[in-house]
Simulated assay, not measured.
Amino acid sequence: MCGAIGRVIDNPFVRGLMDILNIRLDSSTDYNIRPNASIPISIGRDGGPVGVNANWWLFQTRTENGYTYDKRYKSFNTTKAKLFTNRKKDFTHHRCVIPASCFYEWKGNRYKIEPIDDAIAFGGLYKTWKTEDPANPHYSCSVITLPGHSKLKHIHEKSLPLMLLKDEIEPWLDDSFHNPDYWLPTLESKIRFDLRVTPVDKKDPSIQIGDSEIIKAD
């Protein structure tokens, strides 16, 4: 499960990734972004990346005040298995990238997990929802999660969020590319780059409470 992420906007790697994704740098640093938050994502449109804001919860419901998360479905994450069953249409046509500097997992303590000297490009899905203005739909998104990895079982053994490599971003966002089987190697549960794992305060994850460890790439 990926239930919280952090985005440090003055991190040069995050800024560089957001530039690649064509996301405006008008969002602020947030160490504790939780599901149902409005977050910047990048989608593919006419062969290039386009930055939009989306609700981090794939299924939405409409209210008098607009859209909000649909409590019937815990859809801030989408498991790998669903990509080839009931989320196959979204996986084929509505892939997105969600930029971040870190994510968090809990097992006794809270742990911040981040790449060393890099940003995270989460692979995700998105949906569009009709509004009164057809040119400005409401967007929602979900982070894709893979089966857990043995190197992280002491932190979180059930799942691992999909983190794309830089050379995968362009084809991932190519809205003319619709072959889901192409992504099977990408969807293997691998540590794709070195990760730093740091115990942090449960309420304020900007506060480190223990020594970091390095999880080496496979």
Rank of each mutant, 00 (worst) to 15 (best):
24 R>V: 06
59 F>N: 08
171 P>Q: 02
161 P>I: 07
197 V>I: 11
93 H>W: 14
150 S>M: 13
52 V>C: 01
202 K>Q: 01
217 A>R: 15
210 G>Q: 12
143 V>Q: 12
63 T>M: 14
64 E>S: 04
131 T>I: 04
113 I>K: 03
9 I>R: 15
128 T>K: 12
112 K>I: 01
62 R>M: 08
32 N>D: 14
115 P>D: 02
102 C>K: 01
21 L>Y: 11
13 F>G: 00
198 T>K: 05
212 S>C: 07
158 K>F: 05
181 D>R: 14
24 R>T: 09
171 P>F: 10
166 K>W: 00
95 R>M: 10
52 V>P: 06
88 K>P: 02
167 D>M: 09
12 P>Y: 01
159 S>V: 04
145 T>S: 13
34 R>N: 05
173 L>W: 04
156 H>M: 04
94 H>N: 15
208 Q>I: 15
66 G>E: 05
6 G>S: 15
174 D>W: 13
130 K>S: 07
159 S>M: 14
160 L>P: 00
132 E>T: 09
203 K>N: 14
167 D>Y: 12
145 T>Y: 11
163 M>G: 00
85 T>N: 15
10 D>W: 08
70 D>T: 01
184 L>P: 00
147 P>W: 12
21 L>V: 10
61 T>Y: 00
148 G>N: 14
218 D>L: 09
2 C>R: 15
112 K>M: 12
166 K>Q: 01
54 A>R: 07
92 T>I: 12
159 S>K: 08
7 R>P: 01
90 D>V: 06
21 L>Q: 10
87 R>A: 15
45 R>I: 03
53 N>G: 02
67 Y>E: 00
156 H>D: 04
166 K>D: 09
57 W>H: 10
173 L>M: 14
22 N>Y: 11
89 K>I: 12
170 E>F: 01
